[in-house]
Computed example of a mutant assay.
Amino acid sequence: MPVEIWHNPACGTSRNALALIRHAGIEPRIVEYLQSPPDKARLREAIAAAGLSVREAIRSKEPAYLANGLDDAALTDDALLDAMLAHPALINRPFVFSPLGTRLCRPDSSLVLDVLPPCDKPFVKEDGEVVIDERGNRVR
């Protein structure tokens, strides 16, 4: 199954989503979006496919958010997308794409399981949180 992840290796949520993909037996296409950001059309498409608004897909805790006045509710989606492309750290992460759907796996990396084939092997996040228990049940 082809899977792609927009990944930031410095992010624990992104690392856990990647680990879950690999745990399911899939080696994804890894896009380190900070170095290789998508174009505007692809970013807009990813956000829509995940069922989000552009504002929901932006990282408001990044310094560039306030520094660029992105808290202005009057800004258009195009203006927000342009800011996200100018400052890729503003793109929320990780986005995961598979034939089963697209998910922004934040704040919970286990959301990636929604777009992967069933996996019943136990899995624990790097912080010790159980995602799939010893019986193969997803823990929510």
Rank of each mutant, 00 (worst) to 15 (best):
P2M: 15
E4V: 13
N8F: 00
N8T: 00
R15L: 05
N16Y: 05
A17P: 02
A17V: 03
L18A: 03
A19L: 12
E27W: 04
E27M: 05
P28F: 00
P28M: 00
I30R: 00
I30K: 00
I30D: 00
L34F: 05
Q35K: 13
S36W: 10
A41G: 05
R42D: 01
R42K: 12
A46K: 10
I47W: 07
A49K: 13
A49L: 09
S53K: 14
V54L: 01
R55V: 02
A57D: 02
R59H: 09
R59P: 06
S60N: 11
P63I: 15
G69I: 14
D71T: 06
A73M: 01
A74H: 01
L75W: 11
T76R: 05
L80M: 09
D82C: 13
A83S: 09
M84R: 11
P88N: 07
I91S: 06
P94Y: 05
S98Y: 04
P99K: 05
P99A: 13
P99G: 14
G101P: 11
R103M: 12
C105K: 09
R106H: 07
D108K: 13
S109W: 08
S110V: 15
L111K: 12
V112G: 05
L113W: 03
D114A: 10
D114T: 03
V115Y: 06
L116F: 10
P117V: 08
P118L: 14
C119F: 03
K125H: 08
E126V: 04
E126R: 10
D133V: 01
D133E: 10
E134F: 01
E134Q: 11
R138L: 15
